[in-house]
Every structure is written in structure tokens, then in C-alpha cells.
Amino acid sequence: MHAFKYHRPSSVNDAAALVKGEAKLLAGGQTLVQTMKLRLASPSDIIDLGTIKDLAGIKSDGKTLSIGAMTRHADVAHSAEVKKAIPALAALAAMIGDRQVRAMGTIGGSVANNDPAADYPAALLALNATITTNKGKHEADKFFKGMFTTALAADEIITGVSFQVPRRAAYTKFKNPASRFAIVGVFVADFGGSVRVAVTGAGAGVFRQADMEKALAAKFAPESVANIKVKQDGLNSDMHASAEYRAHLVTVMAKRAVEAALK
């Protein structure tokens, strides 16, 4: 790891004043520390958000569920508030990596990182989430820009994510057995009248599956998606799964997600 200067700001404003040039924000470090060890990132400065108290926390008003950027995956997974408002989101957080990673990793870090196989981006997109930053707000639909790319400016800090509470929802993931990241993960959310389906792991970034959304809005049942064939064009092909296999998995995972949402 290359040397850097370490900062421990006590507020978002202090942090914002420090993010410039080659500086980088540090959340849980579960991605960034490894990237720095591999020298894929060599920031001049590390700005640790870990001590900014008001960045972590969970609130719900029945219609929206808001989660602070520094809230750890484990805290989302175990939160009574999340389990009550959007149980599928608590279940998703419990599926991320392993328990040690979940103890440190944060929603803000995961969303900012936008790994094409990460879980949270699927939840944000399916639950029509709003990403709040120190500079304003982003709609999830316009936030994820493909592999490791988001609408965030280089000096923008995520402060929290607000999810719309659906009538019912579920997330199913076909895990990479080694990394636990999604080979394909599908989040289905029924808002009563409108349905959103978000797919992670399959392509260069998270995306919505419009044909499934339409079919499920007409009838929210597994058979509505069971025969929808997903095109393999543009999907990932690697040693773990071909594009053809991933395309097939999208349908299977979507069907299972609908089944789970109905339970």
C-alpha cells in the first residue's frame, strides 16, 4: 500500500473540505483497503467517515425507510425497523459476503462503489430509492452508470439512502460460491399497480427488466415471468457463467423472487 495522509473529520462538512485531488473517502474499508493493498488505488489522503456519528442510523415513517451512509450491513440485516418495513432489504443485507465483512461494510460504500455484482444497487433500483449526498439528491434510476461508475461527483459524499416501502418485495441471488457476490441477483418490488424488477451481477451494471415489470404489474405471480426469455446480448460471460447461462438465471431468479414475495 502506498503511503497517504489520514484524516478523521467529525462532520460531513469537515469531510467535504478535505475531499479534493487524489483524496479518497474511507467507509468500512472492505473494498478500498484491499484495492489500496493491490495498488489499484493510491490516494494521497484518506478521509475516514467512521467517526461521523450522524452518518449511521435507520429511520422509517411507514412510507420511506432511510438508512445513513455509514450504517453497516450487519445493522441493516438485524434491524427490527428494516425487518418490519422492508424485510427483503434486511434479508439482502444478511446475504452480503460473510459476517466479518458485514460487521464493517456500509451501504454508502457499497452504493458508491457500484460493483456490477453487488447486492444493494439492485435494492436501490427496485425500491425507487433516493441517494442523498452533501450536494443534493439522486434518483436511483439515474445514479448507476455501469461498472464501478455512478452519478457522484468526485468530491461528493453520500449521506444516506431512502427507500420507498413497497407492498411486498423479495431478493434472490445466485451466489458465486467463492466470493458470495451475485452471479445473478434479482430484486422484485410490488408497489400495488406498479412493479419494479432490478437485476445485478448479470451485466456491466445493475439494470431494470421492463418486460418483467409489465407482466408482473398485470399479474403479480411467478408464471407471469416464467416464460420471459432474457436476451443474452451485453450480459457478462466469464469463467463462472456464460452470458447465455446468466440470461437464463435472470428468469429463474425473478420467478423465485416473486414466489418469495408472495409468501
Binding site: 489520514y6 474511507l26 474499508g29 483497503v33 484491499q34 475516514d48 467512521g50 450487519a74 465483512v101 464493517m104
Partner: peptide, 23 residues
């Protein structure tokens, strides 16, 4: 996970965090 320690009662991987994060 060979480097797992408990930090404030939670198991974490000590190879994946800066010492400064444990201040």
C-alpha cells in the same frame, strides 16, 4: 478469516482495516 479479531464485540478481519480505524 485467519486474521479475525473481535472489535467492540464484533468479529472483523484485521487484515482488511487500517489500524487507525480501530482508534
Amino acid at each position: 478469516g485467519a486474521c479475525t479479531v473481535s472489535m467492540n464485540g464484533k468479529a472483523v478481519k484485521s487484515c482488511s482495516m487500517l489500524a487507525m480505524q480501530a482508534e
